[in-house]
Amino acid sequence: MRPTPEEVLNSISYTFDELIRPDPAGPLAISYSLTVSNMLRQLMLTMKHEERAIHEDGAELRGVLRQAYGWLRANDAGGEAAAKLGTALALETDPVTPAHSSRDNWRALRGALEAAIKRMQALRGSHGDSADYRAVRQAMRDYLDGSLDREKILIDGAFTLARR
């Protein structure tokens, strides 16, 4: 989930200082103000929903990755993707900074998913007919579908003005 709230805030600060404040009544500043307004709403939605969205998404993702991990260990033992999955699945939330930690861990899980997708695509020639292989690939596709649906909660309702 990028940009992060910190990145959006930094962008708003930069945009005000560099692009709006020098000529606040000019057409460029007015245009940027529209984008800032939309992104402030997006930021509020992110602050409201992100933690839960990452929790729910992460839970489904971990289930899919455990399935992929099992398949890769059985069929591609010693491969980099399996190792990356093992590392990502072992990550724990830091109790001192749980929000940041959850986001970082979720990103690591997504990176492991990408590695697993690429590796399983590469193994399609030798394993594509196997029911186990197809089940893992389908689980990955279902996750991606659901994940984009979950992301929609951070988009819907934010962009109510012209974008620029």
Binding site: P3, E7, N10, I12, T15, N38, Q42, L154, I155
Partner: peptide, 28 residues
């Protein structure tokens, strides 16, 4: 440039939200 802070123009941040989401949705 938003992530590394070199030019955190808000429009670049915007692209990664709504437009990026719509493109990935259409691709899937």
């Amino acid at each position: 440039s938003v992530a590394d802070g070199t030019e955190p123009n808000i429009r670049r941040a915007y692209l990664a939200t709504e437009l990026s989401h719509n493109f990935l949705r259409k691709l899937l």
